[in-house]
Amino acid sequence: MSAFFHDLREALHAAGCPPEAIKTEGAPGQIEVTWPYGDPMTACDIYTVHQHAVRHLAAQHKMAPTFMAAPQTGVGSGLHLHVSLWRDEEDSAFWAPQSGVLPEPLQHSVAGLLTALPHLVPLYAPTGNSYKRYRPHSFAPTRFTWGIDNRTCAIRVTGEESNPHLENRLPGADANPYLALAATLAAIIHGIRNQPKLPDPCTGDGYEDVEACEVPRTLDEALTDFVDSSIPSAAFGSDAMDHYVHAGELEVGALAGQVTDIELLRGFDRA
């Protein structure tokens, strides 16, 4: 892996998007790549370049890369988005001058994420496989919760105490970065405009917070929430919404009639 890491780092530097870190993660063959913060569209462009570089270089090293959210049972890969709001290049809207007190823009942003993201799930979990990543105690959230440096939550407030930022842990590695970030920003705007009530932070195991809304268990369930809510069309317009509903329905239909290995394993000799 070290030779692949070296070549990937060199390629990303040459492409003008040097990474902050490249390292192995919890599962065999799983790697994490991070970048310094910057402009949101540029960040999405960099991630897209990175995907092309990974596929090209992996082939040269006789490896097969995948960006599936759940490439194996019990293994999940995420696309965690770290977000902050700025009034200009030197004035963070999340600046917290008083220790232990979240500034109002941050409170409204978190509340908006918890309120709107349940209705925008197909934009950051677009495939049937996406939902197999959301498993208890997997570091992928199963409920729409938030907490301070709590990795069992969907939304984590992290960073320096005086200058925190948000981490959205819901998108999987299979997400389109532009759509996942668009959903995140739409939810933040929803929070700032409508100022929904912010629930108490989760200070323990977010997987056990039965009061919090559950993450959908299937793409079909997520599409139902997407269609029934007014939030997606208000944020993106009805034409865009219809497009992604159609895309999701095609994905559901492609999987619906397929006989899987686990069905054969469980049913071949039992039927």
Score class of each variant (00 low, 15 high):
residue 67 F to W: 12
residue 54 V to W: 01
residue 85 L to I: 08
residue 83 V to N: 03
residue 79 L to I: 10
residue 51 Q to E: 12
residue 73 T to Y: 08
residue 42 T to R: 13
residue 43 A to L: 11
residue 46 I to H: 15
residue 58 A to L: 04
residue 59 A to V: 05
residue 77 S to E: 09
residue 70 A to W: 05
residue 47 Y to C: 13
residue 57 L to E: 03
residue 49 V to F: 06
residue 47 Y to E: 15
residue 76 G to W: 00
residue 46 I to M: 09
residue 46 I to L: 05
residue 39 D to P: 00
residue 87 R to I: 02
residue 69 A to K: 07
residue 78 G to L: 09
residue 67 F to D: 07
residue 80 H to C: 03
residue 70 A to H: 03
residue 79 L to T: 05
residue 38 G to W: 07
residue 86 W to F: 06
residue 74 G to L: 00
residue 87 R to D: 14
residue 48 T to Y: 00
residue 38 G to D: 06
residue 38 G to Y: 06
residue 63 M to K: 14
residue 47 Y to A: 15
residue 71 P to V: 10
residue 42 T to E: 13
residue 45 D to A: 09
residue 38 G to C: 05
residue 63 M to I: 13
residue 73 T to E: 14
residue 39 D to Y: 01
residue 62 K to C: 00
residue 50 H to T: 15
residue 78 G to M: 08
residue 70 A to N: 04
residue 37 Y to T: 10
residue 51 Q to Y: 00
residue 62 K to I: 02
residue 42 T to G: 15
residue 72 Q to M: 10
residue 47 Y to S: 14
residue 77 S to H: 02
residue 69 A to M: 12
residue 63 M to F: 06
residue 65 P to M: 12
residue 46 I to N: 14
residue 82 H to E: 04
residue 65 P to C: 02
residue 81 L to T: 11
residue 65 P to T: 12
residue 86 W to C: 08
residue 55 R to I: 15
residue 64 A to W: 07
residue 68 M to Y: 04
residue 43 A to S: 13
residue 52 H to I: 11
residue 71 P to T: 09
residue 72 Q to L: 11
residue 52 H to P: 00
residue 54 V to T: 11
residue 47 Y to H: 15
residue 47 Y to R: 15
residue 41 M to H: 09
residue 78 G to K: 12
residue 37 Y to V: 15
residue 49 V to C: 13
